[in-house]
Amino acid sequence: MISFTELLTASDAELVKTFYNVKSDPSVDFIKNINSIAEQLELNHSQLVSAIGFNKNIRDLTDIITVLGFKSYKVMIYRRNELFTTDTYQQLGIDNILDIYSARLEDEEILDTLRELLQPRLQHIEADIEKTDDPGYTFSYRMEIHSIYQSGIADKSFAEERIQKDIGKFRHMASELSEMINAGIFPPSNFFFMESISPDEKRELIQQDHVSSDMVKNRLQNAKISAEEREMLEEFV
């Protein structure tokens, strides 16, 4: 009846029109009520709550919020955040996630919220990738990381936190340092001399011509670098 993207970007008038004929039963459990409404709109629970919750026009449409079974906008947002941060491309496919990121520039409050939710969301996804090694998760994760930087959601604070975490495997998986460089957040030289950056990531920087031979030689003079990093660097001397 309505796509995720259409609901996410609908105007207030379009939202009212969409929900005018929706059948709601406030007497049942609110989860069941949302599921019923989602089914009427040919969406799933998470898609409905996320599309509505990230739509900038829903804040003052209290009748629709009530129809969904939420007591307030704040309660609905709490549920939206919970679903967004605990889903690994199951109920919210990568296309849904990319739609959310592409629509975020239109509203400063939503942009700020997304920046708060990114770290816990990515941490949850990374844990699932670690457990399952699902290639579908990995592919979607790469797309999501690229979108976060290319859309401008990721700022310096976000990037700094990612760099300090022991997640070199995942940064390398998504070529995240390249995304930071392309977004103008950090120059390549900053990464090359950081201890928190893995040898594999530094290899990629060298192969992408972000690092000069003089920088490699300079790094090799550091007696404290790991044997793994030293062995890798010596390949490029």
Rank of each mutant, 00 (worst) to 15 (best):
I2A: 08
T5R: 11
T5P: 15
A10P: 08
D12P: 15
A13T: 11
A13S: 04
K17V: 15
S24K: 07
S24M: 09
P26R: 01
P26G: 03
F30W: 13
F30E: 11
I31D: 14
K32H: 08
A38Y: 00
E39N: 14
N44H: 12
H45T: 07
V49L: 02
S50R: 00
F54R: 03
N55H: 06
N55L: 12
N57W: 00
I58G: 08
R59C: 09
D60S: 13
D63K: 10
D63G: 06
I64R: 00
I64Q: 00
I65C: 10
L68F: 13
L68N: 10
G69V: 08
G69H: 01
S72M: 04
Y73S: 02
K74Y: 13
V75A: 08
V75T: 10
I77H: 04
R80P: 05
R80C: 03
R80E: 05
R80I: 00
E82D: 04
E82Y: 04
T86M: 07
D87C: 06
T88M: 07
T88G: 08
T88Q: 03
T88I: 14
Y89P: 12
Q91A: 12
Q91T: 11
L92I: 06
G93Y: 15
D95P: 11
N96F: 03
I97F: 11
I97N: 05
L98E: 00
L98D: 03
D99Q: 04
D99L: 03
I100Y: 08
R104D: 06
E109G: 13
L111F: 11
L111R: 10
L111D: 13
D112C: 12
L117K: 01
L118G: 04
P120M: 00
I125Y: 02
I125W: 05
D128R: 03
I129M: 00
T132H: 01
D134M: 06
P135Y: 02
G136K: 08
Y137N: 15
T138F: 11
F139A: 13
S140G: 09
M143S: 15
M143V: 10
E144G: 04
I148A: 00
Q150P: 07
S151Y: 03
A154Q: 02
K156V: 08
K156L: 15
K156W: 02
F158S: 10
F158P: 14
F158L: 13
E161M: 06
R162D: 14
R162F: 15
I163E: 03
K165V: 09
K165G: 07
I167P: 11
G168H: 01
G168R: 00
K169I: 12
H172E: 14
H172S: 04
S175T: 12
E176S: 09
L177A: 03
E179T: 15
N182D: 09
I185R: 05
I185L: 04
P188E: 01
S189Q: 06
S189I: 03
N190S: 07
F191H: 10
F191A: 06
M194P: 08
S196F: 00
I197M: 06
E204Y: 02
E204R: 07
L205P: 13
I206V: 06
Q207V: 10
D209Y: 02
H210Y: 09
S212K: 01
M215V: 11
M215I: 01
K217M: 13
N218A: 12
R219M: 12
Q221R: 14
K224A: 15
S226Q: 09
A227F: 09
R230Q: 13
L233C: 12
E235T: 11
E235S: 07
V237G: 03
V237L: 10
